[in-house]
Each structure stands twice: as C-alpha cells, then as structure tokens.
Amino acid sequence: MNRESAIRVFKCLSDASRLNILRALRGGEAYGELLAERLGLSASTLSFHMKKLEEAGLVTSCKEQYYTVYTLNESLLRTQISEMIREDSPAEEDAAREREDAYRRKVLEAFFDGERLKSIPVQRKKKLIILQKIAESIEPGKVYDEKEISGIIERFHPDYCTLRRDMISEGILKREKGKYVKVNP
C-alpha cells in the first residue's frame, strides 16, 4: 500500500460514524437503506460515508435492482498497521515527487503570466507554491527593510501587503523591528 492509500484509510477511519458502519458490516453484507436505518443516518449521509469507505477500499458495493449492497473488504481490514506505515519504495517516492513537481508546474502556469502573478490563490496549497516562487527572488539571510521587501513582492503582484503577510504566516519570512529576513529558503 502506498502512502496516499494509507492516508486515505486512516482519514476514513478517523470518523465515529464510519467506524460504526464498518462494525455493522462485520455481521455480513447489508443494504444501504438498512444500514442508514440501523445507524440513524439519513440516506444521503450514509451514501456520503459509503463513498469515502469505498474510495479508501474498505468496502465494496454492488447494485441489486434498486438497492445497493455493501460488503467489507476483509483483506484490507486484515492488513497490519505496520505494513501500512512502512516506508515507500524508492520507485514510489520518485513517483510521488514527480506528481508533486507536475502539480507545482501546473499551479505556476495557471497563476503566472510571465513574471506577473495574475491572482492570489485562495487554496492554501496553491498559495504556498506561489509564495515559494516569489521567495526565490529574496536572498536568504539578507536583512531587508519594509520598502525593499515590498518592492520585490510588488514586482509580482500589486497586493504586496497580503503576500508579505502570508509569507510571514507561512514561515517564509520573519519580521523583527520592521526588518525582514527570509528564514525558509
């Protein structure tokens, strides 16, 4: 099991209702409607939880006429935690790194027009990529005054105040007595 799959399983299991569903399914396969009734959940809430459990590979489903029948994936449930948290193989690590790089390139292409930042992303993961890109123009360890640091950031986007504040909150820049230092190269 790779890292992403293990995280999906652990995230999925960190919800009491989903654990209750798995417990209920230990007694054997069950119809969605029956499970919802037994666990006091609405049909749409049960369906939401089942989708998460299916995505994590913990249950499987099949349609029987108008109903959906859910079954536990016993083999995954028998997987030991020690196996789930073992280190990824070098090939898996390379693949994960490639995926990260591709995602980073995609975000940069979407948000930059040449050297100019078109807009500030709302999603934190994307914003962090943008901030790291801007931070490449700031020398690590060098002390900048506010005008200098704002000038560098403004070359990318006019809202340098927001970006400067975000860089501080993300731990990229450190501010002390009105001076700025890049702390996270």
Binding site: S14, D15, A16, T45, F48
Partner: peptide, 10 residues
C-alpha cells in the same frame, strides 16, 4: 465531540 466531523459540518 463524538468524532463525527462530517456530520457536524452538515
């Protein structure tokens, strides 16, 4: 509190 975060959101 019951660790039912998704249902809490709903």
């Amino acid at each position: 509190d019951q660790n039912k975060a998704d249902e809490a959101v709903f």
